[in-house]
């Protein structure tokens, strides 16, 4: 049974540059259910990490508008003390770079125990140590007793990331946010870490937000996928739908720029991702990257349209989009 765990409504996270605030996350709404992995893909600067940090309340100077309901409680607008009760307990995060996420001066065992001390103060020292060893074992680090006494620099990158995961799952979180958890790792280690996250999700029945720029990782892991561009969700759908019937020009372009079997030439998206300050706040944000598509195809205030149940696409330009190397007629024909 899937319950709605997290519901984000019209979230807007703005950063101050000079005298003005610029929204890095602009009007994002989404839901996460338990026992579900929601993948969020996008390139650097699309706002995916800013979104994750907003959910966890980790921005110190940003202006956050909108609501983030976690089990019905609005965590975007609660006191820091209440948020601290939830963070590390109900909500947990796996960070991208395991070396900077760990304290270099603290033993592994103590680092994992820290979150237990904070959220489960009733545990005795002995119980706590047992739980830490259990956690180290759970994330498949060999010789837990030995690693308990070690420092982060004595471990490899993959092992460090496992420690970060052990800290995140220490209190059996209901919602786990993984921000590029495998970007710093080798492929074979990546496969192991991803399998681990998937198994933990099944065991704990938790909801997972998996943020990545790697479409392959999303295809392997996610149940639903949200594609972000310039601070907005441009397409959101169930994973099979998204890969088999992508609609938004950006999703299509991204999929075409990854090397696949028998592909001669990779697709290149024209232009660059606009910087936060130069972002067009009106009209379709992707319009400048597909100049060959007629301006009238875009909406003035692009909205998410539900094209089929659970499949949302922003702006109307998707129905007029074709790649410049395929003629308009061929495209129209292919769709009829």
């Amino acid at each position: 049974m899937r319950n709605k765990l997290l519901e984000i409504n019209n979230l807007k996270t703005s950063f101050r540059i000079g005298d003005n605030y610029y929204a890095a996350v602009d009007d994002v709404s989404l839901t996460v259910n338990n026992n579900e992995i929601l993948g969020i893909v996008g390139e650097s600067g699309s706002g995916k990490s800013a979104l994750a940090f907003s959910i966890m309340g980790l921005h110190t100077r940003a202006k956050i508008e909108g609501n983030i309901f976690y089990k019905g409680q609005d965590i975007a607008n609660i006191s820091p003390a209440k948020l601290n009760k939830l963070r590390g307990d109900d909500l947990a995060m796996i960070f991208q770079d395991p070396l900077t996420a760990l304290n270099p001066l603290m033993r592994i065992g103590d680092q994992i125990a820290e979150t237990l001390i904070l959220h489960k103060p009733e545990m005795s020292q002995k119980q706590r140590k047992e739980r830490v060893l259990e956690l180290i074992d759970l994330v498949r680090i060999p010789r837990p007793e030995h690693v308990y006494e070690q420092f982060p620099h004595e471990l490899s990158g993959g092992m460090r990331q496992r420690v970060v995961i052990a800290i995140a799952i220490a209190n059996r979180p209901d919602l786990l946010i993984a921000d590029e958890p495998t970007t710093a790792l080798d492929v074979t280690i990546q496969a192991q870490i991803l399998d681990l996250i998937r198994e933990l999700k099944n065991d704990l029945d938790s909801g997972v937000i998996l943020i990545t720029h790697d479409l392959g990782v999303v295809a392997e892991m996610a149940d639903r996928v949200a594609v972000m561009y310039a601070g907005q969700i441009v397409e959101i759908a169930e994973v099979h739908t998204l890969f088999e019937n992508p609609l938004h020009p950006y999703t299509k372009s991204l999929l075409n720029s990854v090397p696949t079997e028998g592909q001669e030439k990779l697709h290149v998206i024209q232009g660059v991702v606009p910087s936060l300050q130069k972002l067009p706040r009106k009209g379709c944000r992707f319009a400048a990257r597909i100049p060959w598509v007629d301006a009238s195809a875009h909406e003035e205030y692009p909205e998410l349209h539900e094209v089929e149940p659970g499949h949302f696409v922003r702006c109307t330009c998707y129905s007029h989009f074709y790649f410049p190397d395929e003629s308009k007629e061929a495209y129209a024909h292919g769709n009829s």
Binding site: V187, T188, Q190, A191, L194, D214, L215, G216, V217, A219, E220, A222, V239, H240, F243, L255, V258, T260
Partner: peptide, 13 residues
């Protein structure tokens, strides 16, 4: 190594 590459087709998961 080859088996560790994520497959872009979710049906092959």
């Amino acid at each position: 190594l080859v088996s560790a590459i994520p497959d872009i087709n979710p049906r092959n998961r």
